[in-house]
C-alpha cells in the first residue's frame, strides 16, 4: 500500500452541500408519534434559523434524511443530529457540494406513514422499490423523497 499523503484542500465553509444519511429508529413504538412530532418541530425551528433545508423520511426500518445548506452549518447540524440517541447505526450515504437545493422551500418534510404518504404504498403503485432503508443508496433516497414531497404538495393543493 502506498502511504502517500494526499492533502485535500477544504472547501469554503459557505459552499452549498447536500448530506444524505440513514439510520435505525430506536424510538419505542408507543412513543413514535410524539417523538417524531418533537423532532420535526425542533428541526423546523433550528433549520429555519440556519438556512438549512431538507427532508426527513421515516419508515418502519428507520430514518433517512437529506440536509442542504452551507457546509459548516450542515456539519454542525449533523453533529447534533448524529449523536441523537433516538437513532443508531447512523450511516452517511453522501456528503457533497451541490449547485442547487433539491428541497429549497422545505425546511423539513415529514414523509411518514401517514394517510397521505407512505413509502410502502409508493412501491405498490409501481414506483422504485425501497423495501429496506439499509440497502438504499443516497440516490435512491433522494429520488424517493423528491417524489413523495411532490405528492404531498399535490395532496395539500387538492
Amino acid at each position: 500500500m502506498r502511504m502517500t499523503s494526499i492533502r485535500r484542500r477544504p472547501s469554503s465553509p459557505a459552499t452549498l452541500y447536500r448530506l444524505i444519511y440513514r439510520s435505525q429508529n430506536d424510538i419505542p413504538a408507543i412513543e413514535i408519534g410524539r417523538e417524531i412530532r418533537s423532532i420535526l418541530v425542533s428541526s423546523r425551528h433550528n433549520n429555519a434559523a440556519n438556512n438549512v433545508t431538507g427532508a426527513l423520511l421515516f419508515t418502519a426500518s428507520g430514518f433517512a434524511q437529506v440536509l442542504e445548506g452551507p457546509r459548516d452549518v450542515v456539519e454542525l447540524t449533523f453533529e447534533r443530529i448524529g449523536a441523537d440517541r433516538r437513532h443508531s447505526d447512523v450511516m452517511v450515504l453522501s456528503f457533497t457540494p451541490t449547485e442547487r437545493r433539491c428541497f429549497p422551500q422545505w425546511w423539513m418534510a415529514f414523509c411518514g406513514q401517514t394517510a397521505s404518504v407512505d413509502p410502502f404504498s409508493e412501491q405498490n403503485s409501481g414506483n422504485p422499490p425501497l423495501t429496506n432503508l439499509h440497502t438504499a443508496t443516497g440516490g435512491d433516497i433522494l429520488r424517493l423523497l423528491e417524489k413523495l414531497i411532490q405528492r404531498e404538495d399535490e395532496w395539500i393543493a387538492a
Partner: peptide
C-alpha cells in the same frame, strides 16, 4: 458514528 469534518465524512 460518522463525523463531518471540513466537507469530508
Amino acid at each position: 458514528r460518522p463525523f463531518l469534518v471540513e466537507g469530508h465524512v
